[in-house]
Amino acid sequence: MDPFKIFDCTLLSKMSGLRPAVNLRELRDRVALCSSNVLYHHFCETPLVPLFDYPDYRNDFAIWARHHLRDEILAERLGIIDPYAHACLEDLRAAVLEIIDDHLSERTMVPWAPPGRELYFMESITVVFDTGERIDHPDGLAAAIDKMTHGSIYFHFLEARRRPPLGLDDFTAWLETLSGDQRSHITAIASIDFPFYTLAEIKKTLVSVLSNKEPFA
């Protein structure tokens, strides 16, 4: 049995090179043009960037629509997008553009952000560290996750879905390679409605479902 290798990671943020958006039409144009790394950053890397952990929504576009365009309907429509439900980032881009185009067609005026509240398009370099720590047996998974940093949770549970095998977290991928019946663990992990959790909540839920405890008891 190959042990599970625990990695940690951090993000280094950089500017995308795109001009900031000051209104919804500019957001639409930038989303259409930006690289997939930019899209990924604003939808999937938000749990790790130095922003507050409990925003109203889990992606930057919905937060900007809500707080700076003051467009709650658009915020709600963008906020419910689950980036992990899309097969690839181009599908995600198409879904975002569809929502914005629909919304623009319904509005008589394009919503604008006040000065100083522009949306800056960013991307990140993911820096991955091998912690040197290993999990030898699935029975030790919950205890090991309980000790992991938020960076490790992000890397193994969220970022993993971008790597082959696509759409799968590292814990499940590892359990599937093991002999014996790992179905209960795999089913438990699959039951987590993770896109709307913070990293702390994901960690707590993983530990609880893997040890058959109530997550927030």
């Binding site: 280094l12 950089k14 370099i125 993911t126 820096v127």
Partner: peptide
Amino acid sequence: TRHLRDYLTLFFALLSGETENKIAV
């Protein structure tokens, strides 16, 4: 410590020529 880590990460990224997406340390 986060501030220092960001600097060192940037140094490593620039010296290894990896400023695009992901780097393993």
